[in-house]
Amino acid sequence: MEIAYYPGCTLHASSRLYDAQTKLVLGEMGITLNELEDWNCCGATSASKTNDFLAVAMPARNLGIVEDSGLSELVIPCSACYSRMLVAQHRLASNNTLKDEINAELSKKVKGDIRIMSILEVLVPKVESGELAEKAAKLLKGLKPACYYGCLQTRFPYNVPVPDDVENPQGMEIVLKALGAKPLDWSYKTDCCGASATVNDTDTALRLMSKIFEDAIARGANCFVTTCPMCQLNLDAYQKQMSQKYDIGRSMPVYFITELIGVAMGKSPEELQIDRHFADAIGLLKELELI
């Protein structure tokens, strides 16, 4: 099975571990990821807050590249990139003038007919077919993750089809249950972590993160799991600062979903680059004898 793959800037920079894990884990399940040739930045939320035309034009170039490659399915692990591409494809379909204006400048024209998938849309069918469980070398016993989806995995500014429940998504829970973990029900799974506010409006972001932590801890979670590199970096890198300000009193590892799948597949912490976390992520896995 061959799928087009858009890593996006973050997976080639601060969240390189997510890129490595995604390739490793999906590769193990027989999926070949074909990275887009000469892809560009999707513009993230900044483009839509600066210039509306750019917010569609930047993802459009990438969509043209996928279509030109002949592949019909594209996987995007980063929630922000996923959201932007999905929205761009929708807006191109609903505005022919805009589409013509953009296509006039593109060397690889965009038609807008590919299937754009988040990493969960690739993983969940593998649970249903039993392929994921087959590849698991061990069960994630003792792991009680709070699955954190954030904003961009299920909420969109336009009417695009959402493949999961908007307010109570279950994709990560389905994957983790199949691997023997006990994901918890909790209230803040789709609440905002502050996104770029951690940098430009830190106090607001820290307050939002404190609510997420307080609820997850009150429910008895021993770690967070996420698919979004922005949420991961925020909850991880700003965790200490937030804990001190809001007196949280304990540290929580923030894993990528691919990291835990990798552990279940028996991959080593080195292969999965688990040492690249701010809040200790190795200790819990050792304590539960998972690595």
Binding site: C9, A13, N40, C41, A44, T50, L54
Partner: peptide
């Protein structure tokens, strides 16, 4: 923040953090 992001992203085509 948003202005800088767009400037940097469009300078090289990929965002250099």
């Amino acid at each position: 923040f948003h202005k800088s992001f767009c400037t940097a992203a469009n300078h090289l085509g990929r965002l250099n953090e």
